[in-house]
């Protein structure tokens, strides 16, 4: 066996590396489908696959707690909120031909240029660097909790204040107030046209979704 096939090397991948690359390919494919599909609801559902794949990558990097937080917050609440948003803005179920903007080719050029530059840089910088995953687990719940509540208590509390502000802001933004003409018309006119009566419940259901979402986040962060 020559030196190229020695243990830490490209030619002798470990099982963790093989699984990481396979899950990474699936994640990347799901992300590409997310940003290119013309069906809006399918984009949100492929986003679930991409975020779940990232959670598996966290697990492979021995960051267990972050993996489960990722599953809870992203897959559980953010994607559900995005689906709520898609439905409340009456996104078409089928294909919507104007999902992509006119400057798609410029965006593609920018993304490919950025990817080429960054991949070249990263591969060149970390060519001979290996992560030691065999030692103590880096991200178990005990380790993360101890570091979080021993060294990061003040940012953690500031974050809870931020979540409270976001909760209040979401409620204020999605509330239909009664003093303006728009609010008076929305509350008094119930028997308008069909479009009018269909437009009313969307504002009602928008409120509790934002509220319960922020409440869930608040509970998680505690």
């Amino acid at each position: 066996m020559n030196q190229a096939a020695a243990y830490p090397g490209f030619l002798s991948p470990t099982g963790v590396e093989i699984v990481f690359v396979l899950v990474g390919i699936a994640t990347l494919a799901a992300a590409v489908i997310t940003v290119t599909t013309r069906k809006l609801v399918h984009a949100a559902l492929w986003l679930v696959v991409a975020l779940g794949g990232v959670a598996v990558e966290y697990l492979l990097l021995t960051a267990e707690f972050i993996a489960w937080v990722q599953v809870l917050i992203y897959v559980g609440s953010v994607v559900v909120l995005l689906l709520f948003g898609l439905m409340l803005t009456r996104a078409p179920i089928g294909e919507s031909p104007d999902a992509d903007s006119g400057n798609r080719w410029v965006a593609l050029a920018v993304a490919i240029a950025a990817a080429g530059t960054l991949v070249t840089l990263v591969v060149d910088a970390f060519r001979s660097t290996w992560i030691d995953l065999d030692g103590a687990v880096q991200g178990s719940t005990r380790v993360t909790g101890e570091s979080l509540f021993r060294h990061w208590v003040l940012p953690f509390e500031a974050l809870s204040v931020l979540l409270l502000a976001a909760l209040v802001g979401a409620i204020v933004l999605s509330r239909r107030n009664g003093r303006g003409p728009a609010g008076a018309e929305g509350s008094s006119r119930t028997g308008g046209t069909a479009v009018r009566s269909g437009g009313d419940p969307e504002s009602r259901t928008g409120e509790p979704s934002a509220r319960e979402h922020s409440a869930a986040d608040e509970g998680e962060a505690r």
Partner: peptide, 8 residues
């Protein structure tokens, strides 16, 4: 694990 995989 090689560091390049997650970074890339």
């Amino acid at each position: 694990m090689h560091l390049v995989y997650p970074a890339v």
